[in-house]
Each structure stands twice: as structure tokens, then as C-alpha cells.
């Protein structure tokens, strides 16, 4: 079980990093989403893996899984939605404004150079 979770984290991280290093906005956003999954699962796993003991108090139960990482990851999931939305909006705005969805600054034209110097 531990092996599965750890390797899933590793694979999602690797995929996320690879996509983040792409040159266009859309794959980079997908890469960030993958990294978000990886980080969330990683944080969640810091409470160690427990099967069948959700942190909902029951008289019949004596031990529960660690609730704190869950609470932190829950807000992290929601916040990461907000962040993804902002990044998507920025990427979309940049594309609509310049018809170019590169993440890197492209070699500047004459106007841009003049602007940079002033």
C-alpha cells in the first residue's frame, strides 16, 4: 500500500515537472495541476496511511487516522482551485491580448526594446 501511494506521488510529481517545463501555457497549467495532486497526496500521506478509520468519532471505534493533514489538505484543494483559475485567466488574457501562448518572453521587437531602455 505504502509503495503504491509513494510511487503515485513520485509519478505525478515527475509528470507535473515535465509538463511545467513545456513552452505553452496550457500544458504548464496541467503540469501545475498534476503537481498540486502530488503535493496534496504527499501532505495527506504525512498523517500515515490508515484504512477504514475515518476521523469521525464513533463509540465503537478506538483509533482514528490523523485528522489534521486532512483538514489542511481540504483547504489546500479549494485554494488550489482558486489559484488554478487565476493562472488560467492570466494565461488566457495573455493569449487573447497577443495571440501567443508561450510562457517565456519571446525575442522582443524594436518597440519593446525601446521601452525597456527608457
Amino acid at each position: 500500500m505504502e509503495m503504491l501511494v509513494a510511487s503515485a506521488i513520485g509519478i505525478m510529481t515527475a509528470g507535473g515537472i515535465y509538463l511545467v517545463l513545456r513552452l505553452r501555457t496550457f500544458p504548464v497549467i496541467l503540469g501545475i495541476s498534476l503537481l498540486t495532486y502530488a503535493v496534496n497526496v504527499f501532505l495527506f500521506a504525512s498523517g500515515r496511511l490508515t484504512i477504514g478509520a475515518p476521523p469521525v468519532l464513533r463509540d465503537s471505534m478506538s483509533s482514528y487516522t490523523d485528522p489534521l493533514p486532512q483538514a489542511l489538505v481540504l483547504t489546500a484543494i479549494v485554494i488550489s482551485f482558486g489559484m488554478t483559475a487565476v493562472v488560467v485567466m492570466i494565461g488566457l488574457g495573455a493569449f487573447l491580448g497577443s495571440n501567443d501562448d508561450h510562457v517565456d518572453d519571446q525575442p522582443t521587437g524594436l518597440e519593446d526594446q525601446a521601452e525597456g531602455k527608457s
Binding site: E2, M3, V5, A6, S7, I9, G10, I11, T13, A14, G15, G16, I17, Y18, L21, A38, F42, A45, S46, R48, L49
Partner: peptide
């Protein structure tokens, strides 16, 4: 770079799990 990063997180996660 991606594989190195993946291995690193895998190692870390597996270690503390």
C-alpha cells in the same frame, strides 16, 4: 529533471510512510 524530482518525492514519501 522530472525523473529526478519524481524519484526524490517518491523516496521521501516512501521513507516516512
Amino acid at each position: 529533471v522530472a525523473v529526478a524530482g519524481g524519484l526524490a518525492t517518491f523516496g521521501l514519501a516512501y521513507h516516512y510512510l
